[in-house]
């Protein structure tokens, strides 16, 4: 089964759950910006959660399928069909995604997963180093991707319980845990409203709001950063590091967005606003455990319904 790209969309890349084991060589985790959406759409077509999917941004692609198969769409709504359920597509069918109606990033999983070679432990596209994914780059018109699986038999009519999904919003409250330099700042981070700027990408989203001023002038030795790290450059406008963020950074770390809320940030568009709310590390851990339990239940439930 093949998928031909008729229009590429603004930035359409192959993504997965990221690369593990290469951060010592400076290789970022990478993978889907909204990893939760990506995992759910994979489960909905009977794939392993980390199978390669397409991630598209603000404007989606137009794709033609050469054989019958099953797909699932999730994340932002790009107007190409229902989200969060398996959808049958027939040979020769064109699936056309438009501009994002909600969210910023859409995901398409196809039964069997995209057939993409593993580079450094992952199938995701790392644009900055031009590795992984489809030739290390975003998709272009004329690219032809292969997928392994045939169409799935889907039993009955049902919907997943959408409470499993992150509470997507254009004005989300995003939970954080404290960063190493949090005591060097006042409380502005958790009282102000921040707006997402257009200078945002898979490495990080740049916010504007009241400047965060550090009370200490001391320059820091660079140290590890992770997706979710909120760093504050000298201009006081915070940057939330995302999937393709470097592994080491030199700016003060005021906070880290908790893992379960990173999808909320991944789905913001330029102009959307967010607020931060602090939680404890224990709470952040518990939320991950809760999410994984919910995903395990979904996985079990779907095993009966997708053959």
């Amino acid at each position: 089964m093949a998928i031909t790209v008729i229009h590429a969309g603004m930035l359409t890349t192959v993504q997965d759950l990221g690369r593990r084991g290469h951060r010592a060589a400076g290789v970022p985790l990478g993978g889907a910006m909204d990893a939760m959406a990506m995992r759910v759409v994979n489960l909905l077509v009977g794939n392993a959660e980390d199978a390669a999917v397409l991630e598209f941004t603000l404007t989606g692609p137009e794709l033609v399928f050469t054989a019958d198969t099953t797909i699932a769409l999730g994340g932002g709504d790009f107007g190409a069909g229902p989200l969060w359920q398996p959808v049958r597509v027939c040979a020769g069918e064109c699936v056309k995604f438009g501009a994002a109606r909600t969210g910023c990033r859409g995901y398409l999983a196809v039964a069997g997963g995209l057939d993409i070679p593993v580079v450094l432990g992952g199938r995701g596209t790392y644009l900055r180093a031009q590795i992984g994914g489809w030739e290390g780059r975003a998709l272009r018109v004329g690219d032809v991707l292969r997928a392994e699986g045939a169409a799935r038999q889907v039993a009955g009519r049902w919907h997943i319980d959408e409470r499993i999904l992150p509470p997507y919003s254009e004005t989300p409250k995003v939970r954080i845990v404290r960063g190493a330099q949090a005591p060097e700042f006042d409380g502005t981070l958790t009282t102000a409203v921040f707006k997402l700027t257009a200078k945002s990408d898979r490495m990080g989203v740049r916010l504007v709001g009241p400047a965060l001023t550090r009370r200490v002038a001391r320059e820091l030795v660079s140290s590890s950063v992770v997706p979710g790290t909120v760093q504050v450059p000298p201009d006081g406008q915070p940057i939330v590091l995302m999937a393709d963020a470097q592994t080491i950074g030199g700016y003060p770390q005021i906070a880290h967005v908790i893992s379960v809320d990173l999808p909320l940030v991944a789905q913001l568009r330029p102009g959307d606003t967010l607020r931060f709310r602090e939680v404890t590390l224990e709470a952040a851990h518990q939320l991950i455990l809760d999410r994984e339990r919910a995903l395990a239940l979904l996985r079990e439930g779907l095993a009966q319904k997708i053959l």
């Binding site: 593990r20 084991g21 660079s222 592994t247």
Partner: peptide
């Protein structure tokens, strides 16, 4: 523990909280 990365005067240990018996 999923990844161990030495850097400067520290070592960063990446973990999967679902596999750790408590932080």
């Amino acid at each position: 523990v999923v990844e161990i990365v030495p850097a400067f005067a520290s070592v960063t240990v990446y973990y999967d909280v679902t596999q750790v018996g408590g932080y």
